[in-house]
């Protein structure tokens, strides 16, 4: 039996506005994994991510009547998530908290991961948690705005144009932020990258 076609976001938004509570639940189910990745990779903390994500969806629910449809719901949700996360990070200041215990064990079977971390030089052999910690530390050294761009582009695989819409900046600015952020990350993670 073929899968039921996915209900478009716009229809779920319209139903939410009409007072259907299940419609917004469907949007939460649809967007929470993706937004979790976005928020987590900006905060590097699972507990903060959980609370923040709840607030992000609550804010979206309250503001859904203000969603005019000038952009896609996807862009609108990501804009709310990025703005709220940046505000949260500004308030949190320099406090850093990383939970490194929740790593998906699949990462150890990932071909890319093995390829990157196993060089001929034993110095390149890094264990998973050390590499993850260094990655998180490197990410935390970036400014909030640079981290947002890196998260959306490198981790979430969003195209430049979509990132530009979410952040309300030009594609050129997205590219220049990426260039600067990659240079910073490369300096910090040099020893983990095969030459």
């Amino acid at each position: 039996m073929p899968d039921e076609p996915e209900i478009p976001d716009e229809e779920l938004v319209a139903r939410t506005r009409a007072g259907d509570p299940d419609a917004f639940s469907d949007l939460v189910v649809r967007y929470s994994p993706r937004l979790y990745g976005l928020v987590y990779n900006m905060t590097s903390n699972h507990e903060d991510t959980n609370d923040l994500l709840q607030e992000i969806f609550a804010k979206a629910y309250r503001s859904i009547n203000g969603f005019r449809g000038n952009s896609s719901f996807y862009t609108w949700m990501h804009s709310i998530a990025v703005n709220m996360t940046i505000n949260f990070l500004k308030k949190r200041g320099r406090r850093q908290g990383m939970s490194l215990d929740d790593v998906d064990s699949n990462i150890q079977n990932d071909r890319e991961f093995i390829e990157i971390t196993s060089g001929n030089d034993p110095r390149h052999e890094a264990n998973l948690s050390e590499l993850q910690q260094r990655l998180n530390e490197a990410m935390q050294k970036l400014s909030h705005e640079h981290r947002a761009v890196v998260t959306m582009f490198d981790i979430q695989g969003m195209p430049h144009a979509e990132i530009a819409k979410v952040l309300g900046i030009s594609e050129g600015t997205v590219r220049s932020r990426l260039f600067y952020a990659h240079r910073q990350l490369q300096n910090y993670l040099e020893e983990f990258i095969k030459r």
């Binding site: 979790y36 929740d102 990462i107 590499l131 490198d154 990350l185 990258i193």
Partner: peptide, 14 residues
Amino acid sequence: DISKLLRMKRYEQP
């Protein structure tokens, strides 16, 4: 290289 490293962060899931 940086992009490959960063892609690994996709595996950090709850």
